[in-house]
Design a protein around this nucleic acid. Structure first.
Lengths: 134, 134
DNA sequence: GTATTGCTTTACGTTTACGTCAACGTCAAG
DNA sequence: CTTGACGTTGACGTAAACGTAAAGCAATAC
């Protein structure tokens, strides 16, 4: 069992393959490309997707589940790939990270609140049910 | 200091008042009414908002911050006001609560993942920065 | 060869969540 | 009484996130 086979071709996927795997349509995948969220290789006219594209796609979809607009998602995943060679670039990235965290933590507070309320509501319902049962 | 003054008029608000207080436009508030998310009292042609409407509005806005579509938000807040007199109704509501919780917990997992990744990324950036500084 | 399968681009359609006039009612202030 | 300030109902506009044909290339299947 070879740890890493340097001669092996890096695995690639077709648009139909990743679309199906991620549970979206190929139209959706191409839309993300139009917005610059993924940039698959081109072999002639065909799109070839690499692991990098899969990583990005899963980031995009998680962002969507969290309710972020695609444009904002792009700034986020671009952040992860941004050049960080110079000090000024690194400091910019660190500032962006802070903004992101503030946003995410706000969401988590909202989420926790919603879950707490839901729990309280369930309790009330269960009490009502118990009263009905006697 | 009266605990509860039964003779006191319940406090009400105008559309401009709640719009400004919640940081949205009156157009937005009326849009939520069009979708049946809030149903203010009508005094003639004017809308009169009560505490109940404010509660709903804050639920709506939190739902929006969490990225829920308005139609889904309506089913959620309607759930809180749903009749629960009969056993079958209560059991339906409890089932809905379970669905909601599943959804919210999924979101929380996504959110925690995103925050963890962000932390790891920040660490890497800080290491890079330290290397630049020597 | 041609028929099918899979991928491509182009382009218009749709839904959601409002923004943005337009045109009009109403009520207190001057 | 008319002028604002504030409110109202349409109704059309728009941006985002795709859906949905339409029409064509390209390789394999028979």
């Amino acid at each position: 069992m070879p740890a890493v086979d340097p001669g092996a071709q890096a695995q690639t996927w077709t648009i139909a393959a990743i679309a199906e795997e991620f549970g979206v349509t190929h139209r959706t995948v191409r839309h993300y490309e139009d917005l610059g969220l993924i940039t698959p290789e081109r072999r002639g006219t065909q799109r070839i997707y690499h692991r990098r594209d899969r990583t990005r796609l899963s980031l995009i979809l998680r962002g969507k589940r969290l309710g972020f607009p695609l444009e904002e998602i792009r700034t986020i995943i671009d952040l992860y790939d941004a050049p960080r060679g110079r000090r000024s670039q690194l400091e910019y990235v660190l500032a962006q990270i802070d903004d992101r965290r503030t946003d995410l933590e706000r969401r988590r507070r909202d989420l926790d609140e919603a879950l707490t309320e839901l729990d309280r509501f369930e309790e009330r319902c269960r009490e009502d049910l118990a009263r009905l049962t006697h």
